[in-house]
Amino acid sequence: MGESSPAAERLACGHTTGELVEHLAGEAAPEFAAHAAGCPHCSAALAELAPGWSALRRATEVSVDAPSGLLDRALRTARRARGRESGDPAEIPQDCGALRVAPRATLVLARRLSAQLIARRPAARLLSCTGDGREVRVELRVGYGTPIPELVAGLQAELATALRDVLGAAAPVVHVRVVDVAPAHEP
C-alpha cells in the first residue's frame, strides 16, 4: 500500500508500544493488561501515550454539526442530478405531429395547479412544489388536528387528475408530503 508506518517501539520488557495502543483502545488481551499494570517499562510508555489518546477520546465527544443550509443544498444537488437524467421534454401526440412540453413548463403548471387546489383547503399551506418532467413533489404545512391521510390523498389525486387533463399520458407522478404542523388556526 506504500503507507508510511510509524515504528512500534519495542520496550525493555519485550512488548511494544503497538500493544500499549491496543491496550488503550481496549483491544488487548486481558493477560497483557495484567502485565502492563505491573510493568515499569509499560507504565512509563503508557504515561507518554495517554495524553494523546485522551485527547483523541475527548475529540470524539465533540459533535461536528452540518452547517445550516447544507441539507437544502444537498437536496437541490440530488434533485438536479435526477433532473439531468429526466430532463427530456414530455411528448403529447397530436394529429399533425407531437407537442413537446419542457420539464420546466410541467413544473410551472404543477405549481399553479397545486396553489389552486390548496387554496380550497384552509387547513393546508403550500410550502414548495419542486420536481421535473417525471415527478412533482409538493410539500405542505397543515394545521394541528387536520386528518392528514385524507387531506394528502385527496390533494394527490386531484393534482394528478388535473395534470393528466392537461398533459395526458405525459403527466408526471405526484408526491405530496406534509413537512410541518402549525397551530390549528394558522397552517
Binding site: 503507507e3 508510511s4 510509524p6 512500534a8 508500544t17 503497538g18 495502543v21 494523546g52 489518546w53 483523541l56
Partner: peptide, 11 residues
C-alpha cells in the same frame, strides 16, 4: 498504524 501515527503526531 493509523493510531500509532496519530499518537506520534499528537506527542
Amino acid at each position: 498504524r493509523a493510531r500509532l501515527a496519530l499518537l506520534e503526531r499528537l506527542e
